[in-house]
Design a binder for these strands. Sequence first.
DNA 1: CGAGGTTTTGACTCCACTCAATAGACGTGG
DNA 2: CCACGTCTATTGAGTGGAGTCAAAACCTCG
Lengths: 245, 245
Amino acid sequence: MSDALGSDQSPPALLIRKLASTAQLSDRDRGAIGMLPFAVLTFPGRTSIVHEGDAPKQCCLILDGWAYRCRTLANGQRQIFAFYVPGDMPDIESLHLHVMDQGLVAIAQTTVAFVAHKDMRALIQSNTNVAMALWRDTLIDATRCRERVISLGRRQAVGRMAHLFCEMYVRLRTVALADDLRYLLPLTQAELADALGLSSVHANRSLQELRKMGLVTLHRRELIIQDWSGLATTAEFDPSYLHLI
Amino acid sequence: MSDALGSDQSPPALLIRKLASTAQLSDRDRGAIGMLPFAVLTFPGRTSIVHEGDAPKQCCLILDGWAYRCRTLANGQRQIFAFYVPGDMPDIESLHLHVMDQGLVAIAQTTVAFVAHKDMRALIQSNTNVAMALWRDTLIDATRCRERVISLGRRQAVGRMAHLFCEMYVRLRTVALADDLRYLLPLTQAELADALGLSSVHANRSLQELRKMGLVTLHRRELIIQDWSGLATTAEFDPSYLHLI
DNA sequence: CGAGGTTTTGACTCCACTCAATAGACGTGG
DNA sequence: CCACGTCTATTGAGTGGAGTCAAAACCTCG
């Protein structure tokens, strides 16, 4: 994985840039975030960052790599709810909801910065504006979740996949991890299937369909969008739900 | 529709009870909420409370009736994301995200109390604890959305429907609108279908299947759960995601 | 009683699933 | 550098869940 969000790679700097991409931050806000103590840890691919059922005492910020949130059902089927990329804080909600009802898993090798809940709480107590920005961020996460509901409920396989490809492109571009209509997509087809509510066989066939339509290629984890407007059309993709400034 | 949440039916009292059902509120918090100016309005069934694309200047609190959030796709298909019942504030997010990317529709006749954004903002600025409770509430809403993702992605029709019936029972019970394993479900089968990502024909057949299994009956808008544990089992329902205290 | 919405049924189609086998990629160690 | 095991991707054949279309039965209410 390459650098995200430009030059300063310190966790606070990344978080500041991320929040500033969807909300206004004052200098005082930036200063307060800059004081947050982070602990950086690296997880190998396919390992659990937070387990289903855990009650974490810290929040995490993805610095490098990808992670996903998922749950496994009784029959062994898995559903992936969301993907998280550098700049995202997948589990701010653990500040308010004490038991995680889903796990957080690193996809490729993933570097994560942890902040203790007590430090986050101190920050948001003393700094309403930052609290609002974080709240807003969780609301955007919910918006993406709703978009997934539409996909699963009302789009068929090819459209769902196209939609995911569009969303990840736009999101990765805001953290400088995609440009020129291409990005690293560190997922297996089985993981894609688990996110899209498909079997892996059908995920494979849908991907082939997108290739055949001349919209994308995916080879060795590199996704290349050959026809953005075609892809966006088959996905019925409208990026406004991402609420980027 | 009958009374929700006990005796005092004023909007602030309802909101206080609702927030207190998932978070701790001090007397100061309760006092501050009590001062909120609400404007009460009643909507006939099947009318829009907030339109897709609106930028509301107020939040709403359901006092009586049901509402749902939905979006219509280009081909005319509809997806319902969530149902809201008395005590719920479906669009607190409009405080942070200024354009609604989905509409809010009254199902049966529904009474709603509106609070201006500026009053809500004043409340949460001066009262961190209330802000946290509201934030928490939006996170629980997101949790329900994720549960819907699992349903749509990994459960089949009968299980999805069973899951919705379980969820609504538990939620309505916390506002005293369900007990004795029965409640008013003011939805047509077409609306049920739009929530579950099904065609209305298949929604009908799934409902018949639940009847045939002896789990529920639904007649004249009254849902009767005949076998709770059977229903919860076919739904794989685990209420912890609702984060009720 | 009639009109309009809602629920139910039937027949047919098709999208997506399962099972199973093959092919390709990748990494490790001999 | 090749052999091997292990993932991952691909293909085929058969099945089944859910969709579509259309008509009939049923409320409900003016």
